[in-house]
Design a protein around this nucleic acid. Structure first.
Lengths: 174, 174
DNA sequence: GAAAATGTAAAACGACCGTTTTACATTGTG
DNA sequence: CACAATGTAAAACGGTCGTTTTACATTTTC
């Protein structure tokens, strides 16, 4: 595991658990086990580090959503919540913490959410055997809602979303 | 409009638009049009100010949800988004920014979310003429999802959630 | 084996943080 | 008129922020 990977892994964890602004560079250097000089050589700045974290998060998250049914989509979210916990969407959180005024971050969030929307749309189409933009938007909202509600309702939120999605998909098939 | 109200109003706007941690006291005093001495006399500390903001937000938000049907619930959310914009749930954002480590804030969030969950549950019961905990949880997730997705999908997210809720409620009635 | 690359440890940078204090002006009330 | 109460303006507080620099050790490479 090289230094950059170690840094990004540690930073993702700290940003997620304590918030972006609330995480200082001293905490990051300590958790990554490197000097601040090395950290800045690899990441450039705190903002660029956040962008690197989001890029890695996108890769890992989207890889989990390589499925072909809506039910599998929510099963993947259940896995994610069990393994990574539920503290809300790190992308929208980074946007909120920066007020949308940091271009590198706003851009990373937009790109991720568009990819996510497209993925949900594809899964719905693959599941139904045809495009259904309305249903896709509803499934996306259930997914976002489960992510958000899981913060205070736990894994139950995801299974409730899963059963709601099954009803909506059943309706789309008949 | 007294000073405390003016302060809370200004603080809510700044916290919502730029984030809690990213909003400094100088910005708050300037927006509220008062000296830092007066601000501290009224709010005590930045953390207590955040708690005051959340308390006022809870009052105003819950007042909007005094409805008797699930459809009216989403109509109320549409109004809210049109008037106040969509930057995500301020309660969960405050929790995320503080890492859940600030008791006064964690407590305000828990209280609000429990009241919100109960309200949704009541509205579903009033709409169906009977309790339906499973459906209530699904409606809550659609509501949270619409709030979250509206950040990047706009008002369309709310109407998509609204139509999904109508399907789920229709299913509960038959 | 010299040189370049890559790392650590720690001090220093100026800027800004939340908060308190000092000194003074205005106001409402007996 | 006196006197609390309540406000402003601005300096000062110690501490922490993100970032850079200095000085030195280790490893890699030709």
């Amino acid at each position: 595991m090289n230094l950059t990977t170690k840094l990004i892994t540690a930073a993702e964890k700290l940003f997620d658990q304590h918030g972006y602004m609330a995480t200082g560079m001293d905490r990051l250097t300590e958790a990554a086990g490197m000097s601040s000089r090395t950290l800045y050589k690899h990441a450039g700045s705190k903002t660029q580090l956040m962008a690197l974290v989001l890029s890695e998060r996108d890769r890992r998250f989207m890889a989990r959503l390589e499925v072909e049914s809506v039910d599998a989509l929510f099963a993947a979210l259940e896995d994610w919540v069990r393994v990574e916990g539920a503290r809300g969407c790190l992308f929208l959180r980074s946007l909120a913490e920066t007020g949308g005024e940091t271009p590198e971050i706003a851009q990373a969030v937009t790109a991720h959410k568009e990819a996510f929307r497209q993925r949900v749309s594809d899964v719905v189409a693959s599941d139904l055997g045809r495009e259904d933009p309305v249903r896709a938007e509803q499934i996306l909202i259930l997914f976002e809602g489960a992510t958000q509600a899981a913060i205070y309702r736990g894994a139950d939120a995801v299974s409730a979303a899963r059963s709601a999605a099954a009803i909506l998909m059943g309706r789309a098939r008949s």
